[in-house]
Nucleic acid binder design. Structure first.
Length: 477
DNA sequence: ATGTTC
């Protein structure tokens, strides 16, 4: 059913799903392959039937079942002959991760970790339906849809350097709020600066291991240093935008006579009105998510200032980087020796651009894009760098996290939140959540090992390990 | 992921 190409690379041959235009390719170790659901492999094969797909339909080592496309999936489609599909992006448009440096050492933070975690939990609203202190006007919402993190910085939530250290400078061009429904706007307005629920979190961490001293130095990372990781997305706005346009694109599938093996793969020709309307609305959600993470960054800095009695500049709280891991983008890639423009869909996959790529910020141009891979609650997260190999193998992409292996429902029967919390506290990790069930659903045991997943992309060479960070305090919804 | 069942 899958054919081994190398230690971490497997081919899903043409034929697993009728109508496959290219093979599938799954990047996993032999041991991770055992945990991959056959349905996930079917999803990778299904995507290979879509018009204009380039090279192969891929999935990263953290792959698992998603809506239509597998989570952990990467697929690139020809700009003219290809398609755009909301299932290839996911409901949480521009779910992503950012990492803030500090010049604090672990020893300085540990005595304050309970107060710090409590204050972060208090200052950054979290949980399903959580609301912000900010009540955005229609005009501000439009500005955020159009300008992302740049809007947030101009509104006073951060500094100029923050946007320079985001993928795409914290906003994508071409967004058009006229394709965002009133319902999506209503859901989005009160949610700027909120974390949400599920696997989203705000985590205080420390660097415990450096793998590549030169790159770590370029990223401003040293052993023992405290960092803050923020993982969240576009909240209700992005979810509603996806829902609205899925409905439109389900109709478009019939209109354009596209054969799809699964209704969840609703799509339309890339340059059709329907696909472009989705794309312009998706860019609004992507920009909303960058604005959201930027506002959270501001409140995180304020919280540190209060707890440590020093200002954020003095604490060295610079943004290291911000990555999107649920987004579709028009990018230039080399296919069959020729440069071409493709819509790269990354759904639970991180861009991993190499040294010297013009889209990598000047500060990191010599070493490659920072690739931020969050672990599950209580397990290590990793900082990697992008590589030339990623451009050759995976359309400049790597994995995005540990990858869930147990459903939320199952997790709640298997684990007790309070017990998990006590276990984590025994390891020196403070957890603050809206409800114990949130902790049970996100227990470390419901995920693959982040270390094992990261080792696959490192060994393949599609991203290289730079540093590992260990949690000290976690706030989540 | 999500005002967690249109």
């Amino acid at each position: 059913m899958v054919r081994k190409l190398s230690d971490n690379s497997w081919e899903i041959p043409i034929g697993r799903t009728p109508g496959m235009r290219v093979p599938g390719r799954l990047f996993v170790s032999e041991s991770l392959l055992e945990g991959i659901d056959p349905g996930t492999i079917d999803q990778i094969a299904n995507v290979a039937t879509l018009p204009g797909i380039q090279k192969y339909s891929m999935a990263m080592p953290d792959a698992h079942l998603g809506y239509g496309f597998a989570i952990g999936g990467v697929a690139a489609f020809d700009r003219e002959e290809g398609i755009l599909s909301p299932g290839g992006v996911g409901f949480d448009i521009n779910c992503g991760v950012r990492l803030i440096r500090t010049n604090l050492q672990k020893e300085e933070v540990v005595p304050h970790i309970e107060a710090l975690t409590e204050a972060l939990f208090h200052n950054v609203p979290s949980g399903v339906g959580s609301k912000s202190r900010i009540r955005a006007s229609d005009r501000e919402l439009d500005d955020a849809f159009l300008h992302g993190a740049r809007w947030a910085v101009e509104a006073g939530y951060g500094v100029e350097a923050d946007t320079e250290h985001c993928e795409a400078d914290g906003f994508l061009d071409g967004a058009d709020p006229s394709h965002v429904s009133t319902k999506a706007r209503t859901r989005g307005k009160p949610q700027f600066g909120t974390l949400g629920s599920g696997n989203h979190f705000l985590e205080v961490q420390y660097v415990d291991e450096i793998y590549d001293r030169d790159v770590a130095s370029a990223f401003g990372l040293v052993e023992g240093q405290v960092t803050v990781m923020i993982h969240c997305g576009s909240r209700g706005a992005g979810h509603q935008i996806c829902t609205d346009h899925l409905r439109e694109l389900s109709q478009a599938v019939k209109k354009y006579g596209i054969q799809i093996p699964d209704k969840q793969l609703a799509c339309a020709p890339a340059q059709s009105r329907e696909a472009q309307n989705y794309f312009k609305a998706m860019l609004c959600a992507a920009n909303y998510a960058w604005a959201n993470r930027q506002v959270i960054t501001h409140w995180t800095r304020e919280t540190f200032e209060k707890i440590f009695g020093r200002d954020a500049d003095d604490l060295g709280m610079d943004l290291l980087y911000d990555v999107a891991h649920n987004v579709a983008k028009l990018e230039e890639h080399r296919v069959d020796g020729k440069k071409k423009e493709v819509y790269v869909h990354r759904k639970g996959a991180t861009r991993a651009f190499p040294p010297e790529h013009p889209e990598v910020p000047a500060a990191y141009r010599a070493v490659g894009q920072p690739v931020l891979i969050p672990g599950s609650m209580g397990t290590p997260s990793f900082i990697l760098c992008g590589t030339k190999e990623a451009m050759d193998i995976s359309f400049g992409s790597a994995c995005h996290g540990a990858g869930r292996i147990m459903s939320r429902a199952h997790a709640k029967t298997e684990f007790r939140g309070q017990t998990i919390k006590e276990n984590l506290e025994a390891q020196g990790i403070t957890v603050r959540a809206t409800h114990p069930s949130v902790i049970a659903e996100e227990a470390p045991g419901v995920y693959k090992s982040s270390s094992e997943v990261v080792n696959v992309v490192h060994e393949l060479g599609i991203a290289r390990k730079v540093a590992r960070v260990i949690p000290l305090g976690v706030a989540k919804g």
